[in-house]
C-alpha cells in the first residue's frame, strides 16, 4: 500500500474511532439525564413527605437536562450521519447501487458543511463568552468551555460526514461500525 493509502486508512480509522467514542459518551449522557431527572423527583418527593425535614433537593435540574440533551445529541450525531437519515426513496430506486451510494456521498458533503458552520459558530462563541465571563443561568458554569465542547463535537460531525462522503464517493460499502 502506498504511503498516501496507508495515511488515508489511518485517518479513516481515527475518525471512526472518534465517532465511536462520542457515541459511547452519548449513551452515558443519556442515562445520566435519566438519573438526574429521577434524583430530582425523588429529592422533591422526600422533601414534601417529610414536610421539609429531609432536604436533598438540588438546584439546576432543568439546566442539567438541557445541557444533557444538547451533548447527548451532539455526541450521537456523528455516527448517525450515515445510517440515521430519513431518505425518501422516490426516484433513486432506479439508480444502480453504486450510483445510489455516490449520491449518498454527495449529500454527506452537505452535512460536512453544516458541521463546519456549527463548529465555527461555537468556536467564535468561546472567545466572546470568555471575554464577558458568561456563565449558565442556574449553576453558573462558565460558558466558554461549554462552547469549546460544542465546537469539538461539531468538528467530529464534520469529519465523520467527510469520511462518509469519501467512502461513498469511492464506492466503498457502508462502514461496519455504524449502528443498525
Amino acid at each position: 500500500m502506498s504511503v498516501a493509502g496507508r495515511l488515508s486508512a489511518l485517518l479513516d480509522r481515527a475518525i471512526a474511532g472518534l465517532s465511536g467514542w462520542l457515541g459511547r459518551l452519548a449513551a452515558v449522557l443519556l442515562m445520566a439525564m435519566v438519573g438526574v431527572v429521577l434524583a430530582d423527583i425523588m429529592s422533591r418527593t422526600l422533601f414534601k413527605l417529610t414536610g421539609g425535614g429531609l432536604d436533598l433537593t438540588f438546584p439546576g435540574g432543568v439546566e442539567l437536562v438541557s445541557l444533557g440533551l444538547l451533548f447527548t445529541l451532539l455526541c450521537a450525531m456523528p455516527r448517525a450521519v450515515e445510517s440515521g437519515q430519513v431518505v425518501v426513496d422516490l426516484t433513486t430506486h432506479r439508480l444502480s447501487p453504486l450510483g445510489r451510494r455516490r449520491l449518498q456521498g454527495f449529500f454527506a458533503l452537505g452535512y460536512a458543511g453544516l458541521g463546519a458552520v456549527m463548529a465555527r459558530h461555537a468556536g467564535l462563541d468561546v472567545s466572546a463568552a470568555a471575554r464577558a465571563q458568561e456563565t449558565t443561568q442556574d449553576l453558573l458554569i462558565p460558558l466558554a468551555p461549554i462552547h469549546a465542547a460544542e465546537a469539538v463535537a461539531a468538528g467530529v460531525l464534520t469529519l465523520a460526514a467527510l469520511r462518509v462522503a469519501v467512502r461513498a464517493l469511492a464506492g466503498r460499502p457502508e462502514a461496519e461500525e455504524s449502528p443498525r
Partner: peptide
C-alpha cells in the same frame, strides 16, 4: 443563523422527553 440554530434547538428543554 445556520450556526446558531442547531445549538438552540438541541438544548431546548421541551424536547428532552423525546430520547427518553
Amino acid at each position: 443563523m445556520l450556526g446558531a440554530t442547531p445549538f438552540e434547538s438541541l438544548a431546548e428543554y421541551g424536547f428532552s422527553p423525546i430520547p427518553m
